[in-house]
């Protein structure tokens, strides 16, 4: 099954991807025949419970899987180029400039020994030929776009000096710095309180719209996905079990894991609580 939103040009296509991991002699399948399409300029939501293979899929697309993982079949096409056959120098050219990723845990994804300005600026120095000063200038503008207060001060600070929300924004800024065409955001808001969550989702959406970035948003947080995505893919134990336009999935889910996720999300919603207390 190929999950597709519209007839528009896909910028990223995954076809029949299977990934295994070896535990000793044991072969454990993590992804089985996964196919999806990310349409240019659209947002694709990838939802599922923990352990369903969402992050493995993201890391496969980024070619960041550890040595113990084996991609047994499939192809990942970025504008027609198969990323699974790309050399490491070709991947270096793509990372940050064409495909970026916001990782799940901002604290471990940032380098504790470099200040924020260096980490955001690095991408621009590497890919856009900026000088250090230009890169820092643009890093400050990016933080400003993401509503970080005192951006100049933040650039000189280290990750441990920032709050969770600021770290998450710094990581998004670093991912956006190279003006990529695709952004993969893996649970970008789950560690945050609800007010910070909504702020960051808003900023993420605005940035992607403004820069015409195609977004792959990975989350188990259904309301967040509903808010941002055009199209949703649901994963369960390494396979895609359902896909469709957001409104369609919300109103008429077919697979039982999808129903389960929606039911849980509804029980944590405001209307549910007002009806019961």
């Amino acid at each position: 099954m190929i999950a597709t939103g519209s007839s528009a040009q896909p910028i990223l296509e995954v076809h029949g991807l299977s990934v295994n991991v070896y535990k000793g002699e044991h072969r454990v399948p993590l992804l089985q025949d996964v196919s999806l399409q990310l349409v240019c300029g659209e947002t694709l939501g990838l939802v599922g419970r923990s352990g369903s293979g969402k992050t493995t899929l993201a890391l496969s697309i980024m070619r960041l899987l550890d040595a113990g993982f084996e991609i047994s079949s499939g192809e990942i096409l970025f504008k027609g180029q198969d990323l699974l056959r790309a050399s490491s120098s070709e991947m270096r050219r793509l990372w940050g400039r064409h495909i970026s990723m916001v990782f799940q845990e901002p604290y471990s994804a940032l380098n504790p020994l470099a200040d924020i300005g260096t980490q955001i600026g690095e991408v621009m120095q590497e890919h856009l030929g900026c000088t250090r000063a230009q890169a820092r200038q643009r890093a400050a503008e990016l933080l400003c776009d993401l509503d970080v207060d005192q951006p100049e001060l933040r650039l000189r600070q280290y990750p441990h000096q920032l709050s969770g929300g600021q770290r998450q924004r710094a990581l998004i800024a670093a991912a956006l710095a190279g003006a990529p065409e695709i952004l993969i955001a893996d649970e970008p808001t789950t560690a945050l309180d609800p007010v910070a969550q909504i702020q960051i989702l808003n900023q993420l959406r605005d940035c992607c719209l403004k820069r015409e970035i195609s977004l792959l948003l990975i989350s188990h947080d259904i309301p967040a996905v509903v808010a941002l995505a055009d199209f949703v893919v649901v994963m369960e134990t390494g396979s895609i079990i359902e896909a469709g336009p957001v409104a369609h999935i919300i109103e008429a889910p077919m697979a039982s894991p999808t129903k389960e996720l929606l039911q849980a999300a509804r029980r944590f919603s405001k209307s549910a609580i007002l009806a019961t207390i």
């Binding site: 808003n202 967040a224 944590f268 405001k270 209307s271």
Partner: peptide
């Protein structure tokens, strides 16, 4: 008030508005 406005509701989730803390 800001905290309660940030509580997600599936039906209204599309009109995402950031509450001003």
């Amino acid at each position: 008030r800001a905290l309660l406005r940030a509580v997600p509701d599936l039906e209204g989730a599309k009109n995402l508005r950031a509450p001003e803390p």
